[in-house]
Amino acid sequence: MTHYINKGNKAPKTGFGEGVLEAGWRNDNVIVLGADITTSVGLNLFKETYPQRFFSFGIAEQNCIGVAAGLALSDKIPVFSTYGVFAALRTTDQIRVSLCYNNLHSVIGGAHAGVSVGPDGATHQALEDIAVLRSLPNITILSPCDATQTKFAVIAAIEQLNSPVYIRFGREAVPDFTLETTKFDIGKAQELHSGNDLCIVATGNMVWEALQSAHQLKENGINARVLNIHTLKPLDEKAIIKAAVQTGAILTVEEHQVFGGLGSIIAEIVVQHHPVPMEFIGVMDCFGESGQPSELMQKYGLTSKHIEEKAIHLLKRKLT
């Protein structure tokens, strides 16, 4: 099994921007819509390279989604990105009717995921985007784990799908550890660490934390499997059922509300097919707040240390 190392911290938005640029270089039909925060979502790269295919629409997210639908109906591949709170929540009805009901190929980037947004505080920390969007038919939801994977996720969204896609990523520069050579398989869980004592199922930037906790657990003689769920919808149900059968204990880890988020997604499958003890790490039905990202991750229980403790607690439940 590959031993993943941090190649250096990198903001996922950079990967997002690089991916859109690369897919846009290959396909003239890629059109980017801006909603005033083009640089903070990494799309300035595309804007500077292909100004004739970048269109500014101002602070008007609902309109952007409708415009994306109109473009997609005319054989374009629209890419629209803003902070997740606006991209997914202000526009939910537009996404539901104009994009999902019409089942139109379009890419929505939800930036600023989670409390690690930091000092901006609760209004700008997307914690409910997965919960809301996953209930919409036809949508694919991607939650890549680092900048490199975000790049390949958006390329896959543009080149492999023909339906609406939401890609979620955080603001902070985080460890960039996945390999350029790893293929991005939409809908496939990635096993990043092997083990049969329990399975840590993680998504987004929490995957790195999960890996660190697995290393720590291993030193204590506990073998934890780590699954990276970069596709939240459609879910790789087989990998989850297999993990339940083979490890007998599942811990989910996400920087999102557990209600409706990864915790719910995995529990729905586990209870139907092979019930085993489960624990959840994530935001527990509350809003975020201002602070430094690392302080917030600590306060909200989202570090490798928290994962490790919860894993030990879960293992005890499994064994009693």
């Binding site: 994306a68 639908a69 109906l73 104009s98």
Partner: peptide
Amino acid sequence: GQGLSVAVGMTLA
């Protein structure tokens, strides 16, 4: 409230 946005997108295309 959504149709005019879709029409704008089609016109842009």
